[in-house]
Design a binder for these strands. Structure first.
Lengths: 328, 328
DNA sequence: TTGTATGCGTTATCAG
DNA sequence: CTGATAACGCATACAA
């Protein structure tokens, strides 16, 4: 069932049907006739043919590192809510934290598969820049700051700085940290820098050998906390770069009979569901992940329409969630 | 840059290029020539044109109720891992628990937009059946049992039965439950039925007025637990139909100074991240969500290839996670 | 093994 | 306002 079948049945030309579908000039009675036939047949135009003809896909490629992560899921929820409301659909590319896959998907989308891309970034390599710099379609980056792409990101640095001050106010002086790869600029570098600068501003020395790194997992938090407390038993603050890591650390500390926050204070980042119900409730920072997704989608839509929006970058606010894992 | 440009540059016909792209008959030297030109130009064939021509999209529509849910996210992770490995991409439709949207997306996908559909179902109405029954493309349903579609689902009933027996073994006799709409057959009906049948088999009477329902949220758990303990203070077991609900219930009980599991025992379903770290650790049941997604994708792929796989339905196993929220 | 010609289902141009 | 027709980029039947 195609447009010319409908045209024949309605006694008009296929051009008329096309006009009907696209709100073009059409007399009242032809409109009626076409409407009737379409309703009777349940005809819907072929998206494939429309795409080929109009060069528009109404598809947005969304590249994510891992869907099974609370923060990413929230961003995706924000993205889809805005995009769907505007008649776009999302092509989801889950890279499972694999850089090769990430580059590969970016390349697949690069040409003419989608109208635009939203890229939730973690680690950015030179190859990323190469691919992203000469895209023929608009791209918005989420979660990392970029100087060559419009982006929406969180103020990881100041969030970390504020959190560090919470520890300091509570009297903590011998800091340890459990982080992630420095290559993740926002998280691995930015949050650690916030900690270091806060300590410097308060004349507190940081023992760099107490800064560990590992994956974004509870297991890393558990293992590294164990390592830290064994090698540096006088540690009184463990600065965890994500709630997941903090959850693992807390689990270890409790098992080891180390009191939180009395003997060791702990923080996380992300305000996860778990942070609200773990004992002690985790002092953490809320990032506006859903908003980030929404803004990213809105920005992409603007780019799609106006063709030349001045390259914007948006830094989102944060909120320190003071709970019970840092002593006061 | 299209196929005939490449053909000209390589000194061959466009058909030759097409054959090169699709592994057709081609002499060695022409192959070389075409390869060279394609590499130089970075040409990639237009997916839109291919779709129109071949009637294949290599797209799978994935309809989900809400991406910001641990169980759904795990299923999606499983789906994408299998689909991507087979060269398919996923068109994600997040319905935000809105039945209208769900029907609408199913309809959008119904015709020729995608090659197949994976549908993570919750509540099934007559309209769903109407739409799903005369699909021109294969559909696999996840999370609910269906008699008219291939489906993969969990053994909610026996999981609930086993969990109920845990309560009974621990000496609980005055059951309450916090559930969800009965229209969700797997969760709202199946799990409650498991509880009721276990009680019946152990000659325990259930006071139906202690069975509450609400949304899939922590808030519902909190509010309903409060309501229950106020109206039926002798309750010694709260059977929560999801971990989220259980988390809310536990939060209330702790606030109210009611000891868990001593005075009131609690269970959940889903083996969420939170269930592992909340105090007391939640006795719950593990469902193989990721496997469910993987199997669903694999089943759809089989359907896509063989055209006529006998309508299969797969019931997945479960594992009771005995932790500390039910007394022993 | 190769090239020519046709058509997939639309939209857009152009003449009427 | 309307209809005929070309074109989008590719894959394939058919002829060579």
């Amino acid at each position: 069932m195609n447009i010319s079948d409908i045209a024949k049945m309605a006694g008009v030309s296929s051009a008329a049907v096309s006009r009907y579908l696209n709100n073009g000039y059409l007399s009242r009675d032809k409109k009626e006739a076409i409407k009737k036939v379409i309703e009777e047949t349940g005809y819907t135009p072929s998206k494939q043919a429309q795409m080929l003809r109009t060069k528009k896909t109404n598809l947005i490629g969304v590249v994510i590192p891992n869907i099974d992560s609370e923060s990413v899921a929230r961003m995706v929820a924000g993205i889809t809510s805005i995009l769907n409301a505007s008649g776009y659909e999302t092509l989801l590319a889950n890279t499972e934290n694999n850089v090769e896959k990430e580059l590969s998907y970016l390349n697949i989308f690069k040409n003419n598969r989608v109208d635009g891309i939203i890229f939730i970034a973690t680690v950015l390599t030179r190859k990323h820049k190469e691919i992203l710099k000469d895209m023929s379609i608009p791209v918005v980056m989420l979660g990392q700051k970029s100087d060559y792409l419009p982006c929406i990101y969180h103020d990881d640095y100041h969030a970390a700085y504020d959190l560090a001050e919470e520890f300091i106010k509570g009297g903590c002086r011998r800091f340890a940290a459990i982080g992630v790869t420095k290559k993740d600029i926002a998280v691995g570098t930015g949050r650690i820098q916030g900690l270091l600068d806060a300590c410097r501003d308060h004349d507190i020395e940081v023992d760099f050998s107490r800064i560990k790194t590992g994956p974004f997992s509870m297991q890393s938090g558990y293992d590294n906390a164990a390592l830290l407390m064994k090698n540096y038993p006088d540690t009184d603050a463990i600065f965890c770069l994500t709630d997941q890591i903090a959850t693992g650390a807390i689990t270890y500390l409790k098992e080891a009979g180390i009191s939180i926050p009395k003997q060791v204070s702990v923080c996380g980042f992300g305000h996860s569901r778990t942070s609200k119900v773990i004992t002690p409730a985790l002092t953490t920072v809320h990032f506006y992940y859903r908003t980030c997704g929404e803004n990213g989608a809105a920005l992409l839509l603007a780019l799609l329409q106006e063709k030349e929006v001045p390259v914007k970058s948006i830094q989102l606010n944060y909120e320190v969630i003071r709970q019970d894992s840092i002593r006061r």
